[in-house]
């Protein structure tokens, strides 16, 4: 579970301070399906980055699964990201040199899983995400939907507790986007906390809890 307490994040642009996050208080229970919506610059992506331990808040307290993770060292943050967080990006962020299977394998390599086990887990993931016949293809040889499926398979291969998706369908057409959403929602049904940042009202409405942001503050929180 995620507990944010008076989280602030300040960016400096020239001599001006921009409060991207201005005293955010937010609790998200395990297994929730949350959408974060708001206009550009409202701080929703920054919030996601803070939750995903990619970004470090300037003030406040962040508790993840009962442990204070606000002041963890860089190495510990990397470990927590690896073990508990899965990221899905708008632009997929696959490594272009590696095949689909190798991209999915990356977190297992970082985790130090033995090669034999890696192989079987990647097989299973390829199966689960219907990518079996695309395993040896490079990202450039995959369609947008396939790329995002590879990215989701990579994000979930270490079975994270929370899946953070930043505009996961932003680069996909409507039909493929719906397929990807169905996939993500399937993972939510299996117990993963799912947090989606999006512009798309229709997409946001599918979540069970809707958080609205403006100017670094939460202005709406409905279930």
């Amino acid at each position: 579970m995620i507990r944010l307490d008076a989280i602030t994040r300040v960016f400096r642009m020239g001599d001006q301070e921009v409060r991207a996050l201005n005293g955010i208080n937010l609790d998200i229970a395990s297994g929730e399906y949350v959408s974060i919506m708001g206009p550009s610059g409202s701080g929703k992506s920054t919030l996601l980055n803070v939750i995903g331990l990619l970004d470090r808040p300037d003030g406040g307290r962040y508790e993840l699964d009962g442990a204070d993770v606000t002041d963890l060292s860089e190495n510990d943050r990397a470990r927590v990201r690896r073990e508990k967080i899965g990221f899905v990006f708008q632009s997929f962020h696959l490594v272009p040199r590696l095949t689909a299977a190798e991209n999915i394998e990356l977190p297992l390599i970082l985790e130090g899983v033995a090669p034999v086990e890696r192989k079987s887990r990647v097989e299973a993931a390829l199966d689960a995400f219907d990518l079996k016949d695309r395993a040896r293809h490079r990202p450039s040889e995959l369609s947008g939907g396939q790329r995002q499926r590879v990215a989701i398979a990579r994000a979930t291969i270490l079975r994270p507790t929370a899946l953070l998706a930043d505009e996961p369908t932003g680069n996909l057409d409507h039909r493929i986007g719906a397929e990807v959403m169905a996939l993500l929602e399937g993972l939510h049904h299996a117990g993963t906390t799912l947090i989606i940042v999006t512009h798309d009202r229709e997409l946001g409405a599918r979540a069970h809890r809707h958080i609205a942001m403006r100017d670094g503050e939460i202005v709406g929180d409905e279930t």
Binding site: N75, A78, F87, H93
Partner: peptide, 12 residues
Amino acid sequence: EIGLLKAIGAPA
């Protein structure tokens, strides 16, 4: 790519 590696938990 380096950003991605960090996001999926690669330490520095």
